[in-house]
């Protein structure tokens, strides 16, 4: 620490009155220490987020491919990478799939999460334990969940088809992950399963914040059951719900692990999303410029929701 006495102390940052005089002496050293508290994290954030975003912006304007790794040259090509990926016939399908995947996942995760959170708000024996065990699917590595669901959804010998045929619900095994017409539904289903626990946890916490007095008062006015939900629960849950929904969009839109593990984007590109496409361009085709262009489009979409997210959470941050 630098013990430089200074006669021109700037604004005192914090601290009670008696400590002031001695702290003035330390002021400059103190400021340096304070900077050192933040510096490692600031550098890490710059290296892990700032640099990648800038690098992707640059790469998306360059012909950054396999050759670049040998020659070190990446000629500027303007917006050609963007036009290439947007004109690609897979782009519109990837957009539609991304939208369906995101909306389908979030709608059902949220609905199921809310139903379960409301259920667990009723006090009953073992409720807390059951609720915390419910978190397991969320904690499992995504690739573990993918492997498990691959075995369950396996067309010929998977337990789901065997059960459904055994019960006489279907005659022929459904090619859950092998048919272009059902693969996306199956992938969305798995993602819903993964996301429910998180939704339950946050919505349960939101419900717990609603004071019991509101319900007691509501009861006197005849607000019970559905009406209590409509006029007491929902309005008070809105803040948590909006954070959760926007957070859900931001997280779901970039999901990659589950899709790669379950279908790899197939069959016949039926489960390609912007994220899987970006991965394939960069790491399968080694066209980093086009991969970067796609991922920037992904960021741009996320950013729209980021604004919503920040507006929704501002209250929570300011406190």
């Amino acid at each position: 620490m630098v013990h430089a006495p200074t006669l021109t102390p700037t604004t005192e940052k914090s601290g009670p009155e008696p400590a002031r005089r001695s702290r003035w002496r330390h002021h400059r050293g103190e400021d340096l220490t304070k900077v050192l508290f933040v510096l490692p994290a600031a550098l890490a954030m710059l290296a892990l987020f700032g640099y990648p975003v800038l690098k992707n912006l640059m790469m998306s304007l360059q012909d950054y491919g396999l050759r670049t790794f040998f020659t070190g040259q990446a000629p500027w090509v303007g917006l050609r990478n963007y036009t290439a990926v947007v004109k690609d016939q897979l782009f519109s399908q990837a957009m539609v799939n991304t939208a369906l995947f995101t909306i389908g996942s979030i709608a059902f995760q949220f609905a199921a999460g809310l139903a379960l959170a409301l259920f667990f708000r009723r006090r009953f024996p073992l409720g807390g334990l059951l609720r915390s065990l419910l978190l397991l699917p969320w904690l499992l590595p995504l690739i573990v969940s993918s492997a498990t669901w691959r075995s369950i959804l396996e067309q010929d010998s998977g337990i789901l088809n065997r059960t459904l045929t055994g019960l006489g619900i279907i005659d022929d095994p459904v090619p859950w992950l092998n048919s272009p017409s059902v693969a996306l539904i199956a992938v969305i289903g798995v993602n819903i399963w993964i996301g429910i626990p998180f939704n339950v946890t946050l919505l349960y916490a939101g419900l717990a914040e609603i004071p019991d007095e509101l319900y007691e008062a509501g009861q006197l006015d005849g607000a019970t059951g559905w009406r209590a939900f409509r006029y007491i629960t929902w309005p008070n849950l809105r803040a948590v719900a909006s954070v959760l929904l926007v957070l859900g969009v931001v997280y779901t839109i970039k999901v990659l692990d589950i899709i790669l593990g379950l279908t790899g984007g197939g069959p016949a590109n039926a489960t390609q999303t912007l994220a899987t496409q970006s991965y394939e361009r960069s790491f399968i085709d080694f066209k980093f410029g086009e991969g970067a262009a796609l991922s920037n489009i992904l960021i741009a979409i996320s950013l729209v929701f980021a604004v919503l997210y920040l507006r929704a959470t501002r209250r929570a941050i300011d406190e």
Partner: peptide, 16 residues
């Protein structure tokens, strides 16, 4: 908060 919007694939591209 903004860092949470950045897809992993963006980081992977650059880090690679």
């Amino acid at each position: 908060l903004v860092s949470q919007m950045i897809p992993g694939i963006v980081i992977a591209n650059a880090l690679y």
